[in-house]
């Protein structure tokens, strides 16, 4: 009698890449819903466009590279990149911005390096940074959040603007957009105003930016669920948030007029999305315990530096990409001791 011979172990666990990615995608839901609620149809359109672009680009690249398309699409990684990019982009960005971002994310960020697992940089952030550098104006097109006076376009108006560049009748672009809280702080502090004075602008809410605080809290909730479900490790998010918090705290205590509070930093911009969903991208993050702490802390540090002294209102994308560069070195020099190398009486 002949039998099949496979190599041990013969048992296969329940984990699957596709399952992992899908769960992470679901964990985005609270933050994404908050974003849609506060920033309108543009967010949803971005998500759909970006998702479609990334899936299409993934399929196209796999075809060109002569790889099977089905299994790779099922692994969910392209979809997740699409979602992350879509959520990071300004809701009023024109369709072609989203398209270009998605293409760069998948082609330059992923497939030119060899596809899933081989990309040293977070693909979504590659796409985002390319856009930030190439189309700085389009990348500031954030609408006023729900609850702030301003124009809140309906679905048709949003579609018309996104695809045809048509503004609602009798409106200028200025009435559609509004500086984000991070941007507002930068500009006004740059003008020599004190934080105390800016706090009363309508764009601010009770904790941080109006709407933004809820979006961030939404991502925080999703992130905590990821932690609970053991889909991500605590180290990277904790280190990102921790270092951002400590830095913000130190500067805020030292000069509260010019440096925003730690809470403001934690709940503004892409902080929570970055800490729980982007910095934790396993492919591009450090994979050793100590490496992950350094990696996360580095991201928090760079975000803070860019927000306060850099040329952009937020710095999550740059911070993640910069720390991606450090990942291989970090991994090599932070190898943990193996069993039997430690002092047993530690």
């Amino acid at each position: 009698m002949r039998f099949h011979t496979y190599s041990s172990p013969h048992l296969t666990g329940p984990n699957e890449v596709g399952l992992l990615m899908h769960r992470v995608a679901w964990a985005l839901a609270p933050g994404a819903l908050a974003a849609i609620w506060f920033f309108g149809w543009g967010v949803l359109l971005n998500l759909a466009l970006s998702l479609a672009t990334c899936l299409g680009a993934e399929a196209l690249m796999l075809r060109l590279r002569g790889r099977p398309v089905g299994p790779a699409l099922r692994d969910g990684s392209a979809g997740l990149t699409g979602l992350l990019l879509g959520l990071a982009l300004p809701p009023l960005a024109p369709w072609w911005v989203v398209l270009v971002g998605g293409l760069f994310a998948m082609v330059l960020g992923k497939h030119l390096f060899g596809g899933l697992g081989y990309n040293p940089f977070n693909p979504a952030m590659v796409g985002y940074v390319v856009l930030l550098i190439s189309f700085p104006r389009e990348m500031t097109l954030w609408p006023p959040p729900q609850g702030v006076a301003g124009l809140h376009p309906g679905l048709l108006d949003a579609l018309a603007w996104k695809f045809l560049g048509q503004l609602p009748v009798g409106q200028g672009l200025d009435s559609l957009t509004m500086a984000s809280p991070l941007d507002a702080v930068r500009t006004h502090i740059g003008l020599g105003q004190r934080l105390e004075e800016i706090r009363h602008l309508p764009v601010f809410g009770s904790l941080a930016g109006r709407g933004w605080e809820w979006v961030n809290l939404g991502y925080l909730a999703g992130g905590l669920w990821l932690l609970r479900a053991r889909l991500i490790h605590w180290r990277i998010p904790t280190a990102v948030l921790g270092s951002l918090f400590v830095l913000a705290m130190v500067f805020h205590l030292y000069d509260p007029d010019n440096y925003a509070s730690p809470l403001f930093h934690l709940l503004s911009g892409a902080t929570m999305l970055g800490a729980f969903f982007i910095a934790t991208d396993p492919v591009t993050a450090s994979s050793t315990p100590r490496g992950q702490l350094i990696y996360g802390a580095g991201i928090g540090l760079i975000v803070y530096v860019i927000r306060n002294w850099g040329g952009y209102p937020d710095g999550m994308a740059f911070a993640v990409l910069l720390m991606n560069i450090a990942t291989p070195t970090l991994d090599y020099y932070t190898r943990p001791p193996v069993f039997g190398e430690r002092d047993p009486d530690e």
Partner: peptide, 10 residues
């Protein structure tokens, strides 16, 4: 099933 090896024949 974890460390054993598969026999081709019995």
């Amino acid at each position: 099933p974890m460390m054993g090896f598969a026999l081709a024949s019995d």
